[in-house]
Design a protein around this nucleic acid. Structure first.
Lengths: 382, 382
DNA sequence: ATGAAAGCGCTAACAC
DNA sequence: GTGTTAGCGCTTTCAT
């Protein structure tokens, strides 16, 4: 928790003159007023503030970290000196002393080109915002895709970050176990699919609920043959989402046989899968595990002269920018990433506090963004 | 709102014993091998390695930073100890001592929803990769959009980052001047439009060349009436891109009157602008300042039963994921962001070295990704 | 080629 | 309430 000087970050003029030229004090004057009135040289330190305020260094430290320990008048004097000098605690020094960096490590993999998916990017933004409010910054790192652990180890051993946010949990999550083993504080965005007994903190979005929402929405519109296009069986996330579609169908006693397809997450896969389904099972609507797949469906419809929304309904997943700008607008399940980020940071604060505690998971519900691709209300008596 | 998993569970054992406050002068062994062979407690320090290798701390430091100073056998012994202990220098301590954080600050604004544009995100990935090779990490921060300087100041004064990468230079660039004034090392992704005399380092992509490329491509296909849809006149980037279109047209003695439109960067603006242009100037092709605008054009064509590529050609800018997955594929100018990142980091290394030098700018050329929206070859004798 | 001493800027512990 | 003392873990002189 740190105190910021009054009216932070302004272009205008700067602290009047620096430390009055006390001839032979302890140190060499490091702050010389520049012609432009802009400070240069190394930033002021605790000692500079202390001298200016006529108190000891510790008192300045207290003024910053535990203001209520000081007598009001002393506090005011110190704060004035802090403001005058534009003092801000040196991070490295503070980090060294407190054994904390106030940095959260996040590993990002490059967005896959040729897909619509940019969930990760949206999450990054949300996380940066949420972290800021908690006094943290986000440190990005990358590691080669082949090694899921790359990067974590160095950061951890060099104590460069206080904690990690682990996101790439598409297939199981080796990082979680690894980090858990070395007592590294972290929060996962994604459930511990493999290990129900995992005691680490996590936040996730209920993909099944999202797809159930999407499917129910289509059923409400009168569709009865709603097809599913998802990912291969080894994707836990994919199977989870699929189960939502399945549940919604069975809740209304609708058959799902022949209506599902499992493919890779590419546009062309979505395109061919939908073509096959259309030929063999004549669905009137599609729910897809991703916007990428949904775009593939849109391609097929276009090729066949069918109109998305009017002739065949389509719902994607992730509410990508593409879903938002394509024509017709692609209905899509939207993950509440802002909220995810907030919960992640909240969990993080607990985790760094008590590392070896069992932490609970948080499951958030997605929403459905309805656009033209799931079309106007259909005649119920189709 | 959200479901919580059970997990009122409880604490396991305590972290391994911590070092006693201060009594023992030298060291208490802080690294106990855990059953699983996993280290715990605080990470090993220079002193730990020194003790194990039977040398002084300095020697270990030298082994890490200037290995050639050591005799081969000593070096080997120290390196073995380093490996045994899994030692890595403590960042905070090193940062404090060397007055460097090896962190690059990057301010990011949330991607604008409802647009296709995600250039920033792609750049972030590239920057993280490029930085890593130079031994830097990227620290993300955000500031409220209203104040372009927010965030920079604190990071700078607390010496949390070594340098900044400034990207949001759409309208002039107050950050550059501000940072320059306080001698803060930074590199801009974007030219100093305002101030030709600016001496700071920058890297940019030649938007004019990109649009010229796009326009020439269309002209080569036989189009003669190529329209422009760009941004308002106060956007330097927009005007630059527009000039490329203009130049390509005039190079072939083609008139541009009535063929240009300047609007906001939204899909609906692109849609209405293209509708008006189609009615009033009958262009057969569009070049747009962004994929977002180009998507608007696609909307108009769809509404009028015109086929993009076949009836009217469209080229966007940024090679967004949307351009890649939409049907028909949207031809688009692609910025070489990976290369930009590499150049940015290269410039950064120079900037942190000699802060007050004049640095030159680097201008990179974009490429054109041709897809179906700029269609098959047209009959030249149209 | 190796070691000893000093200190980066800060805060935790204890004195007064 | 405030000051004093002692490091956090590292690198930089400077001896040896």
């Amino acid at each position: 928790m740190f105190v910021r000087t009054a009216g932070g970050g302004h272009v205008e003029s700067e602290p009047a003159r620096r430390r009055p030229s006390s001839p032979a004090p302890s140190q060499v004057p490091r702050h010389v007023s520049e012609p432009g009135g802009v400070p240069s040289g190394s930033p002021p330190t605790l000692a500079d503030v202390a001298e200016r305020a006529g108190v000891s260094r510790q008192t300045v430290s207290n003024a910053v970290n535990s203001p209520d320990l000081l007598r009001p008048d002393t506090l005011a004097r110190v704060q004035q000196a802090i403001a005058d000098l534009g003092y801000l605690p040196n991070r490295a020094a503070r980090n060294l002393r407190t054994r904390a960096s106030h940095l959260i490590g996040l590993r990002i993999a490059a967005a896959q080109e040729g897909t619509a998916n940019a969930t990760m990017d949206r999450f990054v933004h949300s996380l940066v915002d949420a972290s800021r409010e908690a006094g943290y910054h986000v440190l990005l790192f990358s590691g080669d895709a082949s090694d899921p652990l790359a990067g974590y180890d160095d950061l951890l051993r060099s104590t460069a970050v206080d904690a990690f946010v682990v996101t790439d949990t598409y297939l199981g999550n080796p990082q979680a176990r690894w980090l858990d083993d070395r007592r590294a504080p972290f929060v996962a965005f994604g459930r511990p699919w493999d290990d129900g007994a995992a005691g680490h903190a996590w936040v996730d979005v209920d993909g099944a609920a999202g797809c159930e929402l999407a499917t129910a929405h289509l059923l409400d519109k009168g569709h009865t043959r709603v097809a599913w296009i998802g990912w291969h069986k080894d994707s836990r996330i994919g199977e989870d989402r699929r189960s939502g579609w399945h549940r919604a169908m069975h809740d209304r006693d609708l058959s799902t046989t022949g209506l599902a397809s499992r493919v890779e997450d590419t546009v062309t896969s979505g395109r061919s899968a939908s073509a096959v389904l259309l030929d063999e099972a004549a669905p009137t609507a599609f729910v897809c595990a991703s916007d990428t797949l949904a775009m593939g469906v849109l391609h097929t419809l276009g090729e066949r002269g069918l109109r998305a929304g009017d002739d065949v309904a389509v719902v994607g997943f992730d509410d990508s920018l593409t879903a938002q700008v394509v024509r017709p607008g692609l209905s899509s399940v939207r993950q509440p990433l802002e909220q995810v980020a907030v919960e992640v940071v909240r969990a993080l604060e607990q985790v760094v506090g008590r590392p070896r505690t069992r932490h609970r998971g948080v499951l958030l519900s997605p929403t459905l963004e309805v656009r033209d691709s799931s079309g106007p209300v259909r005649d119920t008596a189709q």
